[in-house]
Simulated assay, not measured.
Amino acid sequence: MEAIDPKPNDTIIPLGDYVDRGIDSKGVLDQLIQLSERCKLVPILGNHDQMMLHARDGESDFQFWLNCGGDSALDSYGSTGQLDLIPRKHTRFLESCHSYFETETHIFLHANYTPDLSLHDHDDHTIRWLSLRDYVPQRIHSSGKIAVVGHTPHDEIFDLGHLVCIDTGVCNGGWLTALDVESGEIWQVNEWGEFRKEQTENS
């Protein structure tokens, strides 16, 4: 965010999975909430974020979340298995996240899409869980808009023209990628906040 330096009229669209696996889920949500006061923020709900919300629904949902990285999220709140230390502003933020977002030229989702199905009619499994390893849309969405997704990590940006996946595996030692869909500019940093050398040289 320091490098992008968003202005009040800029739109930032985080693609989800703000919690779990990393060491500071709490800090990520705090930063996103602060960012929403600085520019137009349109956060997309990821499957891990959805699991965190569902963890309140019962013991089986809670255990499922823990097994998928929820234990790391709770650690960031100083909790050893309790949800009550998660501040209400964090759950409100996740509850306010979008399933998808559209501009005149692009659609933004967490995971995947079905070409012939309207975005409104997509189910949770497709837009939040369906990996590109299991299904890759072979053509552009019926809206005629390019899809930008995350969820399925790749070593490099996965660009098919009609679909762009910018999950480059930061939680597995890769890069956190940001893309300006209008200019094509790319920012990539690792988990220590170090810029990717190629990006620095080309900027």
Score class of each variant (00 low, 15 high):
93 F>N: 03
70 G>N: 05
112 N>V: 13
116 D>Q: 10
64 F>Y: 05
131 S>W: 10
76 S>Q: 02
130 L>Y: 06
83 L>A: 06
80 T>N: 08
134 D>Q: 12
77 Y>V: 01
70 G>S: 00
82 Q>A: 06
118 S>P: 09
108 F>A: 09
81 G>Y: 11
127 I>A: 06
121 D>N: 08
141 H>A: 06
61 D>W: 07
92 R>E: 15
57 D>M: 06
69 G>R: 03
79 S>T: 05
85 L>A: 15
139 R>M: 14
65 W>H: 04
108 F>S: 03
102 E>W: 06
62 F>M: 01
97 C>H: 11
125 H>C: 15
84 D>L: 10
47 N>M: 10
56 R>K: 14
74 L>I: 05
84 D>M: 05
48 H>W: 13
77 Y>L: 00
55 A>T: 01
106 H>S: 05
142 S>N: 12
64 F>V: 00
97 C>A: 10
64 F>G: 00
73 A>H: 01
88 R>V: 04
76 S>V: 04
107 I>D: 01
142 S>M: 15
69 G>T: 04
91 T>Q: 03
82 Q>C: 15
109 L>C: 04
101 F>S: 03
90 H>S: 06
90 H>Q: 12
140 I>M: 14
96 S>T: 03
61 D>R: 14
86 I>Q: 07
56 R>W: 11
60 S>T: 13
76 S>A: 06
110 H>F: 15
48 H>L: 11
123 D>G: 09
127 I>H: 14
127 I>Y: 07
84 D>V: 15
52 M>Y: 05
61 D>L: 12
74 L>N: 01
106 H>P: 02
70 G>R: 00
133 R>K: 12
94 L>E: 02
52 M>F: 09
114 T>L: 11
96 S>Y: 05
143 S>Q: 13
113 Y>F: 12
53 L>N: 07
